[in-house]
Amino acid sequence: MTRTAPSLGKDLVGLERLEPDQISTILDTAEPFKEISERRIKKVPVLRGKTIVNLFFEPSTRTRVSFEFAEKRLSADTVNISSSGSSVVKGETLVDTARNLEAMKIDMVVMRHGSSGAASFLADRIPSSVVNAGDGGHEHPTQALLDMLTIRDTLGRISGIKVCLVGDILHSRVARSNIFGLLKLGAEVAVCGPRTLLPRGVEELGVSVFGRIEDAIEWADVLNVLRLQFERMKAGYVPSLREYNRVWGVSSARLDAAPKDLVILHPGPMNRGVEIDSDVADGPHSVILNQVTNGVAIRMAVLYLLAGGVPEAAEAAKGGGES
């Protein structure tokens, strides 16, 4: 195959605007990068001399750490800025923060922000590459990419696989990125949860809707179980976490009643005993920790491609495997 894989462009803001080819390229590029994390010396010089700022306006441990590992294993210089203690809380605008960083001559910004559209806002205003690490309820593209890589690893393909997203679809950027990405790669997608947490018109995106978790389990090959945030209960979307668990919780009893074994994903952090029971999370069909491992490889692939890396050269770029 001599065809050149499509470039990602300057930024990764979301999966909605990507072509299926571009998504496949990221997944394929992540494959050779997986191995780096298995080495004794987990570092290759692919992004040596590049400066990356991790700009987190919302608290995040797992996504930030995953990006930081990816950056460090590619030898980039990284700076972390989180909202507490930075000038962000002193009233500086997003535009000014971005311009100040830009003035210090950086190459990339990885940003998490509480407002939908913040990533494209930043991407439109600075020449550096912007990687969206989650913007409000809009998109979280690297999470969906690592979810898709994990599904492909486990089931061998994505096309034709039935994936059901369970829980708070309304507020979930993970759900949106998964819906856009999975549909582009030919999966069948459904959502399941209380109607209060399903966004209006979600069916028009091309997904099926299940009101009952039992029906979703009967239909699906894969469940991607989303975190139910405690604030949703306070805001009245669900009456109580206990009731949520009773009605929509993914339990082994429910999974045992299914006609086939399901693959269980969860983007974390989990509320054990709320959206997912411990015996499912820790059970044989859970690939939740594989997701975490794949997260680093996916983020390495995204950073590599945005920095101008050629997918075909990824194997060579990372150097030979350790003997």
């Binding site: 909605e16 939908s116 559209g117 913007d135 409000g136 309820g137 809009h138 998109e139 950027r173 949106r176 966004p199 209006r200 018109g201 979600v202 028009e204 995106l205």
Partner: peptide, 15 residues
């Protein structure tokens, strides 16, 4: 507006 557009963009809607 609460609609398919708000759903796609992940913005909160006014019905």
């Amino acid at each position: 507006n609460e609609s398919l557009v708000s759903t796609r963009l992940g913005l909160r809607g006014k019905p």
